[in-house]
Amino acid sequence: MTVARAEGLVFEYPGPVRALDGVDLEVGASELVVVCGPNGSGKSTLLRLLGGLLEPARGRVLLGDAPLASLPLGERARRIGVVPQTLRTLPDVSVENFTLAGRYAHIDRWRGPREEDRRAVASALVATEADEFAPRPMTTLSGGQRQRVLVARALAGEASLLLVDEPTTGLDPEHQVRIMQLLAELTGGGRSAVVVTHDLNLASQFADAVCLLRDGRVAARGPPREVLRPEVLVPVYGEHLHFGTAPDGRPIVVPWAARP
């Protein structure tokens, strides 16, 4: 079953710069799809189009059977949870109240948060192991904690599709693995995720499918083992790559320049 589908997405930034040039993408139920590609290949643009935050010039996004463009904002927010890479400014609120914002589309303006909203927030905080610092102000959190809370907020909305933008940027290896483990655990039971990342090794370990973009087009897609091969990656990223194999047989790709 398909949770979301992008069909022939074309998007241009003013300039005009064609960021996406006919991208198709399918996200199955309980699937974790990693989107990767060089800088400027259109990864974040694709994610924003999937979330309805940008309007495609051509093509469309389907959420289940419904065109995303036909869904009202509230309905979109209830079905799609977006985890941004960073926020412009961190609001001066507690972790718990920040997470409650994920329930915005569920909460009645006049009645305020109800028991079910509190429950959703509490279980999202537990799932992301952010419950231990729930009363703390957002501004006091470390990078890794902040990232978990951003995931918790998206989770609190009980959406069936999570769109996650570069969740591991700026995190140490331990926290990178933990946040990807978390996303992999959360994917399942009908919930799917699209994760944009530069980290091919995390994609190798955690993705069900990898979608490789190049210059706004899909260069390759498939299971990590099929995409993360020299024949596929070198034409896209260039030659400064070294390929290896992890103990469990999964491909490893690291940036590499032979030194004289």
Partner: peptide, 24 residues
């Protein structure tokens, strides 16, 4: 006030973030 109070808090993270939460 009742129509913008929470929304202005949510706008702290940027317009795109607020939109993704369902804020018009």
């Amino acid at each position: 006030i009742p129509f913008v109070a929470w929304e202005l808090d949510l706008l702290a993270g940027g317009e795109e973030d607020a939109t993704s939460l369902g804020v018009d």
